[in-house]
């Protein structure tokens, strides 16, 4: 296990890294569209309110159409980009994560710094049988490091593996 730890822990060989589960894109799309629905709803109210007004800043329907298009575009593009740049790998003594579209962040969580572990699944993720692994450490900024978009079994498997490591380490 030790031998595949590269000399630069925060930049790993591409081949050793794993992608998230492809369905993660769908989950993210649904979540963004749900958020977008709020925006569309607000725009709809604005349009409805200005329907009978004498003069309004925008012609009727423009706000709604624009926000619908925006939500659709974001919902299509962002999850793909997230998915494209998300990588993780469980190496000998650490969990490595890399993600981000604009700001690309690499994280190394040494396994013995893990305080405890969570696996969580929300109602949308449950439909696709996905889950998140949440790794809690004592660091301020990294009190919960989230690894989303895993197959639920994979999340549980990772948790059990990490858990084993911690226990083995401390006994």
């Amino acid at each position: 296990m030790i031998s595949d730890v590269p000399s630069t822990p925060l930049s790993s060989a591409e081949s050793s890294l794993q992608h998230l589960h492809p369905s993660a894109r769908k989950v993210w799309t649904i979540k963004i569209l749900l958020l977008g629905a709020i925006l569309i709803f607000a725009a709809l109210i604005y349009d409805a309110a200005s329907l009978f007004a004498d003069e309004s800043a925008l012609p009727t329907g423009v706000a709604t159409t624009a926000s619908a298009l925006l939500a659709a575009a974001l919902g299509l593009i962002i999850p793909r980009l997230w998915y494209r740049f998300w990588r993780y790998s469980l190496r000998g003594e650490e969990l490595f994560l890399r993600r981000g579209i604009i700001n690309r962040v690499s994280t190394v969580v040494p396994l013995r710094r893990i305080q405890h572990l969570d696996v969580s699944q929300d109602i949308i993720e449950r439909e696709f049988d996905l889950g998140k692994l949440i790794v809690h450490t004592a660091g301020t900024r990294s009190s919960d490091v989230v690894l989303p978009g895993l197959a639920f079994e994979e999340a549980e498997r990772l948790r059990d593996e990490l858990k084993n490591y911690i226990l083995e380490d401390t006994i």
Binding site: L10, N103, V105, T107
Partner: peptide, 20 residues
């Protein structure tokens, strides 16, 4: 130390810079 980070924003990528 607990967790290690290295980050590179879109502008930093152009200049080949990183934040640690």
């Amino acid at each position: 130390m607990h967790v290690f980070y290295s980050a590179q924003s879109i502008f930093q990528r152009r200049l080949r810079l990183k934040t640690v």
